[in-house]
């Protein structure tokens, strides 16, 4: 369990994180999403005791991070996979981390096998690709077999096979009852992985809801039609309560179903050359959501989403 209470971080005059309160529960993958610069990394660094909050606090399993006796056995973290000394070999790097928490060499070998780096364990880290570095970072997080895992953008730089691997790994760890916080700037990635979502924009919490709730609230669809009489159809549709906007080579209608639009056209005697339904992608919904947080400076568009305030 990770808890944040009014977490706030100010860098000079810039407010990086503003009054974040949330809970990350065990047994679930919690996706921490927001555009670049939204404050995801800063929030994670405050949870890990690396940056001191300007206000508020964070605890892991009920304790401030610095007070955890054996941190690697309680929390595994991957922040920046590239933040390693390039002159060191992979095995020595992992061993140096393991030794601080009295973790054995055998466990170091084990995690190297788990992430599939056995063949390059002796190679210096500056020769590693970004994908290999990500695997190394995940290996480091797993060393203490911790019940809480924090991954900052673990998908970055991975090839498709690697992405599937990380996704499977994260899912299986959640199923074992671990608490998992994964950040990403891609909603499409979270759609595949997360059970719960924390959406932030400009350092503020915009949404704290389950993935299912987010999808239900944001799966808006639109009907796309092509007709030789667009003006007449637009009028008829508007009378029936639909919202019309011009689309590529026809009209896009929101607020009505495909069947309803077909019926309106038939009763109005308007020929339709094309009729289809498109779904607004989750990514699109996410972008609109976070963009509005920027436009209205923290007066989030809350109408469609369950928002947790100061919980």
């Amino acid at each position: 369990m990770i808890e944040a209470h009014g977490l706030t971080k100010r860098f000079g005059s810039a407010l990086a994180v503003s009054d974040l309160s949330f809970r990350v529960r065990p047994g679930l993958v919690t996706g921490f999403v927001g555009p670049n610069g939204a404050g995801k990394t800063t929030t994670m660094r405050m949870i890990l005791g690396l940056d001191r909050p300007t206000a508020g606090s964070a605890t892991v399993n009920g304790k401030p991070y610095a007070r955890i006796g054996s941190p690697m056995h309680e929390v595994g973290a991957l922040l920046d996979a590239r933040a390693v000394n390039g002159g060191r070999g992979a095995r020595a790097h992992l061993l140096s981390l393991a030794q601080t928490n009295d973790i054995s060499r055998r466990r170091v070998r084990e995690v190297i096998d788990i992430v599939g780096l056995s063949d390059v364990a002796g190679k210096r880290l500056r020769t590693f690709s970004l994908g290999m570095s990500q695997r190394l970072g995940i290996a480091a997080a797993l060393l203490g077999d911790p019940p809480v895992l924090i991954f900052d953008e673990p998908i970055n730089g991975l090839d498709p096979e690697g992405i599937v691997w990380v996704r499977t790994l994260i899912r299986s760890m959640a199923e074992q009852g671990r608490t998992i916080l994964v950040s990403s700037h891609l909603m499409s990635e979270m759609e595949q992985t997360a059970d719960h979502l924390l959406v932030i924009g400009r350092g503020r919490l915009i949404a704290d809801c389950s993935m299912a709730e987010f999808i239900a609230a944001n799966s808006r669809s639109a009907v796309v039609v092509r007709t030789p009489e667009p003006d007449s159809l637009a009028r008829a549709v508007a009378d029936a309560g639909g919202t019309v906007s011009p689309a590529a080579d026809g009209l896009s209608i929101a607020g009505l179903s495909q069947d309803q639009v077909a019926r309106i056209a038939f009763t109005s005697g308007i020929r339709l050359d094309h009729l289809s339904e498109t779904r607004v992608s989750l990514e699109q919904a996410f972008m609109e959501l976070t963009a509005s947080s920027v436009d209205y400076h923290g007066e989030p568009a809350t109408d469609r989403l369950p928002v947790k305030k100061g919980a």
Partner: peptide
């Protein structure tokens, strides 16, 4: 960052 995460004291 990693060093102080594994040894926060």
């Amino acid at each position: 960052s990693a060093s102080l995460t594994v040894m926060p004291r």
